[in-house]
Amino acid sequence: MKFKLNIWRQKDAKSKGYFQRYDIDNISPDCSFLEMLDILNESLVDKFEHPVCFDNDCREGICGMCGLYINGQAHGPDSGVTTCQLHMRRFTDGQTITIEPWRAKPFPIIKDLVVDRSAFDKIIQEGGYISVTTGGVVDGNSIPISKEKADKAMDAASCIGCGACVAACKNASAMLFVSAKVSQFSLLPQGKIEAKTRVQKMVSKMNELGFGGCTNTYACQAECPKSISRENIARLNREFIIAKTTSEELF
């Protein structure tokens, strides 16, 4: 297969970026999207040109490192997959593919298609954990948890923090990410103890970092490679209202 690639090139965070056109040929339909970029980079290196920088790690859809905005969709046209799980057979021969980095104020570009997603880490640092005092190992099943709650918490915890929700949202909102991280704890007894402070701190940090607000378009849910449900956003809103109205420190 052959493709016309329009790729965002940017030397560093301060430089002005531009779209560079590349023509690529002899690509197997079974080649993954990142492998296609590897082939492109090899050809660029052979010509003593700078390869296209992009984030990647596990290449099996669980690390959340890869993330490209491909032809108007975060992680490309397939649903429920990351960029590394996307294959070239999903495109037509000779198609023009425009590849852009995640674009959001809190995700500044480092180089080419690589963005700094440490904003997510900062949100997690605000409350995406439970405080546990060390001691003896607790017996398994000593805290009963219903199957339904455990499943919902597990679904929320499957968020890999790739940032596709922010990239796909017209407002660059991180509500799906924050809601998944809040839900995975608030659904479980261990997480309930700090639930009120957690939700307020994480939402406050999200706003401080410059993410947009949620307008409930649910583009985030549509593009999430782990199909995190918008139900979590409703839960986050609910938790936030309860926390704001019942915390000892009101407002």
């Binding site: 108007g72 852009e100 583009a219």
Partner: peptide
């Protein structure tokens, strides 16, 4: 973005 967001939304 250069390419308009194509995500399925109402």
């Amino acid at each position: 973005y250069k390419v308009r967001i194509k995500s399925k939304t109402s």
